[in-house]
Amino acid sequence: MQVISFQNLDNFIPQSEFEEKVLLFCQDWRNNKQDFEFFTSGSTGTPKPLKIQREQMINSAQQTIDWLGLEKGNNAFLGLYPNYIAGAMVLVRALIAQMNLILVEPQENFFSEFTADLPPIHLASFVPNQWKTLLMCNLELNNYFGQAKGILLGGSDLDEETKAITSSQCRFPVYLTYGMTETVSHIAFQSLSMNLTNYLQTLPNVHISKDSNDCLVVSSPSTFGEKVVTQDLVEIISDSTFRIIGRNNRIINSAGLKINPIELEKEIGFYFKGINVSFFITGLLDEFYGQKVVLIVKGNEFIYWNDLIQYLKGKFDKNCLPKEYILVKKFEITTSGKLDILSTLRANNLN
């Protein structure tokens, strides 16, 4: 761990490759670099390079600073690599709001840095796996985040059990955020603690709509008002609130039925509540179905298959249910911390 004051953000001595990347970004920013290249997350395909302008990043950072009331002298916790948009935007917010930085290496045992000498944290961003790890470590998180103005979770959705634990244990603001590289970080949030909500609320001056495929369309100051068409299927509740109900590019076409795997995953998550099981639903090529609905499970977990199917029969049409389950040794993870479904399937010779 290294704590760096705002004045020294571009002039500290890095002690690891991670800290070198942080230093380089801060130096580029203070040297007025105008364009930055990032890669999309790669969770639904090969990561693609994307050029983001400095002004877009300023607009995005200012939205978050205003929303959370971040101030000069606050402490921002960074445990994400800055070559992806989530980590970079923590740095931009710190540089604009004149905050200090707490740098913690993004590794599996990062929670070991949560010791008595950790300064108060006012802002932090985590991917879901990091947040789950913190919740499972028996740390008294209220001691570390008690002064937080916002703990931001992003990159993918959280399972319902983790949301419930967050709501019951955290006496500080935790938000599940929605955004992507193309929108220059988050444009909406869902409160998971204190004032719990079950929908996403947009930040000010963010405009949402749907296209003909029911996919979310976003425009905001961080996109210069240009519309970004996403692959997320949505239910729009109002001009500023919405729910994600699936991914257009994950829809399974099985025997003529279009099946949303996210709806199945949510119910299976309820079934496995209290049991640490990692899984996802996918469609595999099949001569009869075209795509066969399959449950992929990590590890050697014994699945009470008939009980699970019986449970799901009460929730879904029988033609939408998984036809089998497959155990794999591990799930592939992108460098930004997301489940890489395509690479996991390829690594296990599943088409």
Results as ranks from 00 to 15, higher is better:
I4A: 02
I4V: 12
I4T: 01
E17I: 12
F18I: 06
F18K: 07
C26F: 09
R30M: 10
F36Q: 06
E37W: 08
E37P: 00
F38P: 02
S41G: 05
G42F: 07
T46V: 11
R54E: 01
M57Q: 03
S60W: 01
G69K: 12
G69S: 12
L70T: 03
A76F: 03
A76T: 01
F77L: 14
N83M: 13
Y84H: 15
A86N: 04
A86I: 01
A88D: 00
M89P: 02
I96F: 11
M99L: 02
L101Q: 09
Q107H: 07
F114W: 12
F114D: 10
F114M: 14
L118K: 02
S125I: 09
F126N: 00
F126K: 07
V127Q: 08
P128Q: 11
N129K: 11
T133A: 14
L134Y: 00
N138Q: 15
E140W: 05
L141W: 02
N142D: 10
N143C: 11
Y144C: 05
Y144A: 01
Q147K: 14
I151G: 09
L152Y: 11
G155P: 08
D159W: 12
E160V: 09
S168D: 11
S168I: 01
F172V: 05
T183I: 13
V184Y: 04
S185Q: 02
A188V: 06
Q190H: 05
Q190R: 13
L192M: 06
S193D: 04
L200V: 01
Q201L: 09
Q201F: 00
N205T: 04
V206P: 05
S209K: 13
S209H: 09
N213V: 05
C215Q: 10
S219R: 07
I237H: 04
T241Y: 00
I244D: 04
I244H: 03
I245R: 15
N249S: 12
R250S: 15
I252T: 10
G256R: 10
K258C: 08
K258A: 01
I259M: 13
P261H: 08
I262T: 14
L264F: 02
E265D: 07
K266W: 00
F270Q: 14
F272Q: 10
S278I: 00
I281E: 08
F288D: 15
G290W: 06
Q291S: 09
K292V: 07
V294K: 03
K298W: 06
N300Q: 15
E301K: 10
Y304Q: 15
N306W: 00
D307I: 04
L312M: 04
L312V: 06
K323I: 01
K323V: 04
I326P: 10
V328P: 14
K329M: 04
I333Y: 02
S336F: 00
G337S: 07
L339M: 07
I341W: 01
T344N: 04
R346L: 13
L350P: 06
L350T: 12
